[in-house]
């Protein structure tokens, strides 16, 4: 089966810094793949290259058999890739439903239309999407006053508007309370199961990652140091080294105590 997304020898350098260094991986249809790594490992840089916000220094990105390296975000979106941002990105001057309706307007290529009133367009579709993420009851609230967790869910509804085959989620649970995190990732897992969407996400919360990811990749200092099933990653000494340190500091402290 052809992978839905494939990164081949992806690199991005900022001056002498190799933020992402020769990273290759692939994502199978219907897979929920986690990209983890400590702060500064290059996760967001990697993400921004996949979605076209950042041009790779070297390497290629293949979406469903098509080379999309260097394409603009809006073109990649049109090819069926949705994304959510690390810091939620919604339209503060609109209602919750209108946020989703704008995504639908874009999907139906009506952005340059002058008729009719936009609030009346695709309202039912927007409601259905909001229902998926459990936000239907807040459809007519002003998006600027939502709680952060609700904004995250709204963003997912917006990202689903064009029925994407792939979702890129940059730290979907960042800034949320622990209980909310689990609920949100459960929601994402359900979407993957029901809609057959493939998801690549970065995450800091290991509970979230180990509970839901089908497979995990570990990035450290720009390089992919591990890639495999959840149990294998948990047991990988290199990963433990990165996340727990060599234990030298901690054991030294214990020796003092």
């Amino acid at each position: 089966m052809t992978p839905i997304l494939e990164a081949r020898h992806l690199s991005r350098h900022f001056g002498a810094l190799r933020a992402v260094d020769d990273v290759s991986f692939s994502l199978a249809p219907g897979e929920l793949l986690a990209l983890i790594g400590p702060n500064g490992a290059g996760k967001s840089t990697c993400f921004n290259m996949l979605m076209g916000q950042l041009r790779p220094t070297a390497g290629t990105v293949i979406l469903d058999g098509t080379d999309i390296t260097g394409k603009k975000p809006r073109h990649i979106w049109r090819m069926g890739v949705g994304r959510t941002f690390q810091i939620t990105a919604t339209y503060a001057s609109m209602t919750v439903a209108e946020n989703v309706q704008v995504a639908l307007l874009s999907h139906h290529r009506r952005t340059f239309a002058f008729l009719p009133y936009a609030t009346r367009l695709y309202r039912d579709e927007a409601r259905a999407l909001l229902d998926t993420v459990g936000m239907a009851d807040q459809a007519d609230r002003h998006a600027a006053i939502l709680a952060y967790g609700d904004l995250k869910r709204l963003e997912i509804a917006m990202a689903l508007a064009h029925a994407p085959k792939l979702l890129l989620m940059d730290e979907p649970t960042a800034g949320m309370a622990p209980r909310e995190r689990v609920a949100l990732m459960q929601l994402v897992a359900d979407i993957v199961a029901e809609r057959g969407v493939s998801v690549l996400f970065t995450e800091h919360d290991m509970d979230v990652v180990f509970a839901h990811a089908h497979r995990i990749m570990v990035l450290n200092r720009g390089q992919l140091i591990a890639n495999g099933a959840v149990e294998a990653i948990r047991a990988d000494p290199k990963v433990q080294e990165v996340y727990l340190g060599g234990g030298t500091l901690f054991s030294a402290e214990r020796a003092h105590a």
Binding site: P73, F85, S106
Partner: peptide, 9 residues
């Protein structure tokens, strides 16, 4: 950035 990542030019 959000609008661009949503197909809007």
């Amino acid at each position: 950035p959000r609008a661009e990542a949503m197909g809007l030019d």
